[in-house]
C-alpha cells in the first residue's frame, strides 16, 4: 500500500505524471472562509489574518490539498482603481469599468504593489500561510492574465472592439497589464506562493477565434509566463480550451484548467505526460447536488482522467459559491479519498 503523502508531495508527484497516494483535491473556496469564521464577507477580507485563518480551517475541514490566497477576482481591478461591490453571501464583484474611453489607456498608471493596500493584504496572507504550512501544503496564488483583465478594466464589449479595431491602444494596454501581472505574480511567489494560477478566459476559443488567440492571448501568455519565477497553471474560467491545448502547452504552463463544458477524458489524452490537468466539478450545479450527484460526478472525472497521475480535482471556476452546502463539500472530500486512492483498481 502507498504510504500517506503530504499534500505538497502528492501534488508534485501528480505534476510529474506519476500516481501519488491519492488524487489531489483543490477546492477553490475563498469567501467561504467568512462562513467558517462567522463574519460578514467585507469584515473577513478586512484583515489578512482572517483570510489565513479561514484557509487553514477550510484545509483541515475538507482535507484540501492546498491553501488558496485569492481574495476575490475583482481584487486586481481594485488595484487599478476600480470600485468593488461587497454584498452578503456573494463574491465581491467589480463595479463600473475604470476605462470609459479608449484614449484613457494612454494615461493609465500601473499600480505599485507596495502602495496598493488590497494587494499588500494578499501578500501578508500568503506569508502567514507559508509560515503555517511550511513545505507540507502548496500555497496557491492567482493572477488575472494581462489579456483578460480588461474585461473588468473597460467592460467586455468595449474590450472586444479595442481588440479588433484599436491595435495601437490594445498594445499599450497589454504592455501595462503585462508589467503589472509579472510583478504581481512574482511578489506572491516571494511572499511564499508555491504556484500561480493564470486566469485567462478571453483566450478560450469560445470567446475569440483560434487564429486571433495565436496572434494575441497566446503570445502574451508566452511572454508573461516566461517571466514568472514559479510554476503556473493556466485557467480559462468557465470557458473551454480543447482546440488550443497544443498551443497552451507551448506557453511553459505546467497545468491547464478544464470546464465541464468539455470532456475531461479527451483533454487528458491530449495532455498526458506533458502537462497536468485540473477540473472539472460544476460549481453552479453543485449548489443543488445531493450526495449521490456529487459521487456520480467525481467518479466520472476519476474514471476518465485519473489514471497515471497528472490530475488535480478542482471546481471549474475560480470560486465555489456560498450556496454550496458544507455537507456536500465534506462528501466531495470523502469521495475523493475513497475513490481517488491509487491504484484506481475499481475502473475497468
Amino acid at each position: 500500500m502507498t504510504k500517506m503523502m503530504t499534500s505538497l508531495t502528492r501534488v508534485l508527484t501528480t505534476l510529474q505524471h506519476k500516481e501519488p497516494d491519492k488524487i489531489p483535491l483543490f477546492l477553490f473556496l475563498s469567501m467561504y472562509g467568512a462562513k467558517e469564521l462567522g463574519m460578514s464577507i467585507k469584515e473577513y477580507y478586512s484583515k489578512p489574518e482572517y483570510v489565513a485563518k479561514g484557509q487553514l480551517n477550510i484545509r483541515e475541514k475538507y482535507h484540501n490539498d492546498c491553501v488558496y490566497t485569492l481574495y476575490y477576482i475583482a481584487i486586481e481591478f481594485e488595484a487599478w482603481g476600480g470600485k468593488v461591490v461587497f454584498r452578503d453571501k456573494e463574491a465581491p464583484n467589480a463595479g463600473e469599468p475604470i476605462i470609459k474611453r479608449c484614449q484613457q489607456i494612454e494615461t493609465l498608471t500601473v499600480p505599485e504593489i507596495k502602495d496598493t493596500p488590497c494587494l499588500v493584504k494578499v501578500l501578508k496572507t500568503t506569508e502567514i500561510l507559508k509560515e503555517k504550512v511550511g513545505h507540507e501544503v502548496p500555497v496557491i496564488g492567482v493572477v488575472i492574465s494581462p489579456f483578460s483583465l480588461p474585461i473588468m478594466q473597460m467592460g467586455f464589449d468595449k474590450y472586444i472592439q479595442l481588440l479588433y479595431e484599436e491595435d495601437n491602444l490594445f498594445k499599450i494596454l497589454m504592455k501595462k497589464n503585462e508589467a503589472h501581472c509579472i510583478k504581481w505574480a512574482n511578489a506572491q511567489i516571494e511572499a511564499g506562493a508555491t504556484a500561480i494560477i493564470y486566469i485567462d478566459p478571453v483566450s478560450s476559443p469560445m470567446i475569440i477565434p483560434k487564429q486571433l488567440y495565436k496572434e494575441t492571448g497566446f503570445e502574451i501568455a508566452q511572454r508573461t509566463i516566461a517571466k514568472i519565477n514559479g510554476p503556473v497553471i493556466t485557467h480559462f474560467g468557465s470557458s473551454g480550451c480543447m482546440s488550443i491545448v497544443e498551443d497552451v502547452m507551448k506557453t511553459k504552463t505546467v497545468g491547464i484548467g478544464t470546464t465541464e463544458l468539455e470532456d475531461i477524458g479527451s483533454i487528458k489524452r491530449k495532455c498526458k505526460g506533458k502537462i497536468c490537468i485540473t477540473g472539472n466539478l460544476n460549481e453552479i450545479e453543485m449548489c443543488r447536488w445531493d450526495k449521490a450527484a456529487a459521487e456520480k460526478n467525481l467518479k466520472e472525472i476519476i474514471a476518465k482522467a485519473g489514471h497515471g497521475g497528472g490530475l488535480i480535482i478542482t471546481n471549474s471556476q475560480a470560486e465555489i459559491p456560498w450556496q454550496v452546502s458544507e455537507e456536500i463539500l465534506s462528501h466531495i472530500s470523502e469521495v475523493v479519498r475513497k475513490w481517488g486512492k491509487y491504484p484506481l483498481d475499481w475502473i475497468d
Binding site: 472586444i160 476559443p205 475569440i208 477565434p209
Partner: peptide, 14 residues
C-alpha cells in the same frame, strides 16, 4: 455549436 467565437457574434451583431 462551437463553430464561431463570442467576439465574432458580438462584432457581427454591431
Amino acid at each position: 455549436k462551437g463553430d464561431v467565437a463570442l467576439s465574432q457574434v458580438y462584432m457581427s451583431g454591431r
